[in-house]
């Protein structure tokens, strides 16, 4: 069978589907001061998984606000800088009007994912940290 570390090089999704791959990628991103990109990506996926229902409305609102505050509000943050202004204002509107939809971070997540795929993921595959691991 193909060793996991070779599968990590096939696609970003293969890497993010493996706990060891995530850990190594996160260590690399931390060195580059951009681990927030990965945390934000997973936060968006986790948020989408929370089914809207009466018992967790408060939690979803609190979480949407927390994601907005931590990653999007500060325009100088690594995540915020990679998200289009229109996408940011859409999310801001959702939070202010308390229109909490499971898909409200989808566009932002897509933008961050494209940036990872074009930039940090290829760099990771060429990094010492990955090469040493293999």
């Amino acid at each position: 069978p193909t060793p996991p570390y070779l599968r990590w090089a096939e696609s970003l999704h293969s890497l993010l589907d493996d706990q060891d791959g995530i850990n190594l990628f996160r260590t690399f991103l931390k060195q580059e001061n951009c681990a927030d990109l990965l945390d934000f990506w997973f936060a968006c996926s986790g948020f989408r998984k929370l089914e809207p229902c009466d018992s967790n409305e408060e939690k979803r609102l609190k979480l949407a606000k927390a994601i907005y505050k931590k990653y999007i509000l500060d325009n100088n943050g690594i995540v915020s800088r990679q998200i289009k202004p229109a996408t940011k204002s859409f999310i801001k509107d959702c939070v202010i009007k308390q229109l909490i939809d499971p898909a409200m971070f989808d566009q932002a997540q897509t933008e961050i994912q494209s940036m990872i795929e074009e930039n940090t993921y290829p760099l990771f595959l060429k990094s010492d940290i990955y090469l040493e691991y293999t």
Binding site: D18, Q19, F42, A43, G46, L50, K62, A66, K69
Partner: peptide, 20 residues
């Protein structure tokens, strides 16, 4: 603030694959 961070951390973990 702590509980916000906990909530975020829990959300991030919930999206990660389980250790194989």
């Amino acid at each position: 603030i702590d509980s916000e961070d906990d909530l975020l951390q829990e959300c991030i973990s919930s999206a990660m694959p389980k250790k194989k």
